[in-house]
Design a protein around this nucleic acid. Structure first.
Lengths: 142, 142
DNA sequence: TATTGTTATACTCTATAACTATA
DNA sequence: TATAGTTATAGAGTATAACAATA
């Protein structure tokens, strides 16, 4: 049998765990015809009125150049509307179709979540989440 | 300010933490002219004699179709050698150049690791790693 | 001057199908 | 039949530069 020196690195294990997790979520959302980023945008816009693309860009850390085609595609599919507020910005809102999908997407995220944390003793879930947030939070440092 | 309902999902936070972590490691390896997957292969082959591409494929969960160009590029750059063992398999080994780079890559991974776990209280590191391994491990479930 | 949004482009990683050759 | 490796191709996500319009 072979040795895996990478298993000793939390960074590597984090990467692999994230890949497994994403594959699961991706499969669940596939049934709704949504990619992970698309579902994220729907859930985010559903929870906030008066969101702009630049806010999505900042909150999801997606380069604004990549938000444009993402939002455009959701608009094409009649899930989302754009209402001009000044000459350059638009408020985003969901259509009834978009709201229904956001709800279903969130349900899939919840189901995914349940499967995920099932593998962690209940007493350790809080500190697990805390650790992940600490790593995420230090975006200019880690 | 806007609400972020995604922050409540461990799966989402896991994804974001992994992205931040990978960006850091990627930057460190960039100084060596290596991508994360390339460095992973070098470290893995360095730690094991008689590794084949299919073993790399399984251990790193990289589709064999993607291992071919990855290994080919390392061979082109004189970091790695392939020795035929039967008509279809090859044992991989590092050249002196590859070994030197593997060592440097591992040092960067260690440095990355130190930065990463700095954000987690020492008493919680073990259970954090355990949780990630549990998520990773259940590849046919989560 | 800074911000919003856009276009074009390229890179990294991953995924699948179809194939050859060998065991 | 199963395995090792290859080729071609496509998709998802991310990144940057250059730009127009607006604040």
């Amino acid at each position: 049998m072979s040795v895996d020196p990478l298993r000793d690195f939390a960074g590597y294990v984090l990467r692999r765990a994230s890949a497994v997790s994403q594959a699961d979520l991706s499969g669940r959302l596939n049934g709704l015809g949504l990619k992970i980023t698309e579902a994220s945008v729907l859930v985010l816009v559903d929870a906030n009125r008066r969101m702009t693309q630049s806010e999505i860009s900042r909150m999801l850390s997606i380069a604004s150049a990549n938000v444009t085609p993402l939002v455009a595609r959701l608009e094409e599919r009649a899930m989302l509307q754009r209402e001009p507020i000044d000459g350059r910005s638009h408020f985003l809102s969901l259509t009834p179709i978009g709201r229904a999908l956001a709800k279903k997407a969130k349900a899939q995220m919840q189901a995914h979540e349940s499967e995920l944390i099932k593998h962690i003793p209940a007493s350790r879930r809080a500190s697990f989440l805390e650790a992940l947030l600490a790593i995420w939070g230090d975006e200019d440092g880690v």
